[in-house]
Computed example of a mutant assay.
Amino acid sequence: MGRSASQSSPTIGNKKAPNRRPSHKGPVKLVTGIYFSVLICTTIGLVMLSSGRMTVGGVPLPIVISFLNDQTARDAYFSGKKTKLHDRLDDMGIEEQMKNFYRPQIPDEAKLDQHIHQILYERTGYVGEQYRVNGQGFLVLKD
Rank of each mutant, 00 (worst) to 15 (best):
M1H: 08
M1R: 10
M1D: 00
G2M: 11
G2Q: 11
S4L: 05
S4Y: 02
A5K: 02
A5E: 09
Q7S: 09
Q7K: 14
S9C: 00
P10V: 07
P10Y: 08
T11Y: 06
T11E: 10
G13C: 04
G13M: 03
K16I: 14
P18N: 13
P18V: 07
N19M: 14
N19W: 05
N19F: 10
R20V: 05
R21E: 10
P22T: 13
P22E: 13
P22D: 14
S23D: 13
H24Y: 10
K25T: 05
G26I: 13
P27Q: 15
P27N: 15
L30D: 13
L30C: 03
V31E: 11
V31K: 03
V31I: 14
T32G: 13
G33V: 15
Y35Q: 02
S37K: 04
V38A: 06
L39W: 00
I40A: 00
I40F: 00
I40D: 00
C41E: 02
T42W: 04
T42C: 07
T42P: 00
T43G: 02
G45I: 09
L46H: 15
V47D: 02
L49Y: 04
S50E: 03
G52A: 14
R53S: 09
T55K: 04
T55M: 03
V56N: 07
G57R: 13
G57K: 13
G57L: 13
V59R: 14
P60W: 07
I63K: 15
V64C: 01
I65H: 10
F67A: 02
D70F: 10
D70R: 15
Q71C: 06
T72V: 12
D75S: 11
D75C: 09
D75N: 14
Y77V: 01
Y77H: 06
F78D: 02
F78E: 01
K82W: 05
K82H: 10
T83S: 10
K84N: 09
K84P: 04
K84G: 02
L85P: 07
H86R: 05
H86S: 14
H86L: 07
H86G: 01
D87N: 11
R88Q: 04
R88S: 06
D90E: 06
M92S: 03
G93V: 00
E95S: 11
E95I: 11
E95M: 12
M98N: 05
M98D: 03
M98I: 05
F101T: 08
Y102L: 09
R103D: 01
R103C: 01
I106G: 01
I106P: 04
P107C: 09
E109I: 08
E109R: 12
D113M: 04
D113S: 13
Q114V: 00
I116S: 01
Q118I: 10
Q118R: 06
L120F: 10
E122M: 12
R123Q: 15
R123M: 12
T124N: 04
Y126L: 07
Y126V: 10
Y126F: 14
Y126P: 11
G128P: 00
E129Y: 03
Q130I: 08
Q130W: 05
Y131A: 15
G135Y: 07
G135A: 14
G137P: 12
L139T: 14
L139E: 15
V140L: 01
V140W: 03
L141V: 09
K142V: 08
D143E: 08
